[in-house]
Amino acid sequence: MTESALLIFAALGYLLASVAYGAHLFLRQPLLAAAGRYATLAAVGLHTVAIGVHCAHTHQTPFTTPAESLSASAWAIALAYLALEMFRKPRPTALGAVVLPAAFLFLFAGAFLHPAASVQTPTLPLLNSNLISLHILALLFAFGLLVLAFGCAALYLVQHGMLKQKRVHGGLFGKLPPLASLDQLAFALVAFAFPLLTVGLGAGFVKALTGGLRGLWGADPMVLTSVVTWLVYGLYLGLHAVAHWRGPRANYLLLGGLLVAVVTYFIPTSAHRFG
């Protein structure tokens, strides 16, 4: 099976999982949640193979072009969710209804919106570096966890809104996790993601400073938004832990943090271009 076919099937798997988890949210049928879980598992498996085929074909890491980065991000989101499903009880199936569509959209965007960008160009020798690998992998997994935290924040705000506005009939009322669980999970996800984010950005800065690229990075928009992303999540952790920020304002901060992170993906950059 070709890499394109594998990616198409992976995308279909994420879509199927999204539908299954979404239906489970309303219908509460255990079979739907199980279907979502197995669809996610299959999709991640196919996606992993697709990435492996890509690497074997190109002999380079799959993060040099925007299309590749988006695909890898989709993979990281789905993988992070699967890990959460395996280790957290009760299973956060409501979160699946939010983050699996995100995985699908990222893969879709990568595969169909940047077809020209999937054409391989030789990577610069300076990118053949352990620091660069650390930079990319740490940021990739941090991003996956931050998308999950975004999902928790979104669900929190919906649940909070229903409870505050007394929308107690039908719809999602009574079907979302409790506020306390969502708040706790979001904090834990960011607490895991932030060190990865720090390490990832730090590795990038060290490489930039020591790799003969001084002077190109200082005012690069992508670098600046990356720093803003780091500051937003650092602020969230600090305010949550020290100032006991809870409730909507803390969750709006999480939404804003991911928005900045996504902007980082698409912002025009001159210095952070290698392919």
Binding site: R28, Q29, P30, Q159, L163, G174, L176, P178, L179, A180, S181
Partner: peptide, 25 residues
């Protein structure tokens, strides 16, 4: 398990508890 016959609230006290669980767990 598959229907909502065991879910929901039938008294004011039970309704109050239902809401508490949606906030605190």
């Amino acid at each position: 398990t598959e229907t909502g016959i065991a879910r929901g609230t039938f008294s004011v006290g039970a309704a109050a508890v239902d809401l508490a669980t949606q906030i605190f767990g």
